[in-house]
């Protein structure tokens, strides 16, 4: 429940305050957001499986975003930033899809 409230408050804050993305974070924020979404869907699936733990969620959320940003940063330094970002997005996208499919099966049996 608290995470849901947090998410709603965050969206409202973003809409009301309209902060701008700091320059240094601009390449990494989109990837970090996707990674965080992956953690959120993984958490939702864990809730439905009855194995959810706040602790695991927090750790996976943080490590997901940090690792995703780190990979993009490393890719930019190596000159393959664009390709590596695409790779990260593809992997996270596949994970999000499989988690959503599991959630759907658990809730609707289909």
């Amino acid at each position: 429940m608290i995470p849901v409230i947090g998410l709603v408050v965050g969206v409202v804050l973003g809409l009301v305050l309209q902060p701008t993305v700091p320059l240094w974070a601009q390449p990494y924020l989109p990837i970090a957001v996707i990674a965080a979404l992956d953690a959120v869907f993984g958490g939702l699936r864990a809730v439905l499986d009855g194995v959810f733990s706040d602790r695991v969620f927090v750790v996976s959320f943080l490590s997901n975003t940090v690792v995703a940003a780190l990979i993009v940063f490393l890719g930019d330094q190596l000159g393959v930033g664009a390709q590596l970002s695409t790779g990260v997005v593809v992997v996270l996208g596949v994970r999000i899809f499989s988690n959503v499919a599991a959630i759907r099966r658990l809730l609707f049996g289909a």
Binding site: G10, L29, V33
Partner: peptide, 17 residues
């Protein structure tokens, strides 16, 4: 609560992005 804060940050980052 920490998870809530993280979710808040996610919502913020999502709209900003």
């Amino acid at each position: 609560l920490l998870a809530g804060v993280l979710a808040l940050l996610l919502g913020l980052a999502l709209t900003v992005q």
